[in-house]
């Protein structure tokens, strides 16, 4: 603990980031610019989320990291270790026990509480970017609420695929004001964006922080005749039998056999511990 300041970042930087976070909470969905620091990991590995977590952590917090639902992938393990080492905080894989959860591409299946904070890693914070490359123009579009373009993207989806095929990073309107990219979470998770916990979004390379305060209205954009649908694979988890969770498809051999498992590893484990069993649970156990 002598080598680093608590949670790696110096206090002035954390102060700057906290100000950005507070501003983000005050203006839900608005992208607040911040002076993103160089972190000891490459861009794309969660530098934005890590800075937000660092500025949010207190010594009493219990920290959890999710990478696409899992606690045990490289990215999740390395970020968890990073804060174990630089902040000395307790870590956990259990959603229930965590006070701050940094996530990449998922929202946990278990509902979050008011005393928890969810920190998202965001690659590209600007939802209008792929249609309008000019930053000056997208900022103006946000300030004037000129959001027709967002629907052009959905129109294109329907005209090409017969349905809104955008499956992740599905754009939402926050508190009837800003259109926001919820980071690349599956659209299955979109309804969960209205929750009891604080949600913070950090984009390190793009130097933006934004937030959704608890109990904020978050509406997924759609058409009257093509309403939003939170879709998932039409299966139950092969391990825990859950029918309400987001599933990963896993190819199990060269013959094309496959299985569906909960993407949220903690959710799946806790269900199995509670005695739930899926189609392949016996084999797995064996």
């Amino acid at each position: 603990m002598n080598e680093y300041n608590f949670a790696y970042l110096d206090e002035q930087t954390k102060r700057m980031i906290r100000r950005a976070i507070l501003k983000g909470l005050a203006v839900p969905g608005y992208q607040v610019p911040f002076a993103s620091r160089e972190m000891p990991m490459p861009y794309g590995w969660g530098t934005g989320g890590v800075q937000v977590s660092a500025a949010t952590l207190t010594p009493d917090d219990v920290f959890k990291v999710i990478d696409q639902g899992a606690d045990d992938t490289t990215n999740a393990v390395s970020i968890r270790k990073f804060f174990e080492k630089t902040a000395g905080v307790a870590t956990t894989e259990e959603t229930e026990k965590a006070t701050i959860i940094q996530t990449r591409h998922r929202i946990p299946e278990a509902p979050l509480r008011a005393d928890q904070i969810l920190v998202y890693q965001v690659p590209i914070p600007e939802p209008l970017r792929f249609l309008e490359p000019r930053e000056t123009e997208t900022r103006k579009m946000h300030s004037l609420q000129e959001y027709g373009l967002m629907h052009v993207k959905l129109y294109e989806d329907i005209s090409q695929h017969g349905a809104i095929s955008t499956a992740y990073a599905y754009p939402v309107r926050v508190a009837d004001r800003y259109v926001m990219d919820p980071s690349p979470i599956p659209k299955f998770d979109n309804p969960k964006l209205e929750m009891d916990a604080i949600q913070l979004f950090g984009a390190g390379r793009e130097q933006r922080i934004y937030a959704v305060p608890p109990h904020t209205r978050v509406v997924s954009l759609d058409f009257e005749d093509y309403p939003f649908e939170a879709s998932k694979a039409d299966h139950a988890c092969d391990l825990c039998g859950a029918e309400d969770s987001y599933l990963d498809e896993v190819i199990t051999d060269d013959a094309g056999d496959r299985m569906f498992v909960c993407s949220d590893t903690d959710y799946c484990r806790s269900r199995r511990e509670a005695g739930h069993q899926g189609r392949l649970a016996q084999e797995d156990a064996a």
Partner: peptide, 22 residues
Amino acid sequence: RMSVSAGGNIGERLMAVGSRHY
């Protein structure tokens, strides 16, 4: 918008003024 279909190009102004019926 060169990366958007002809229909999307025409529809953009409609959507910009609030049309929400595909």
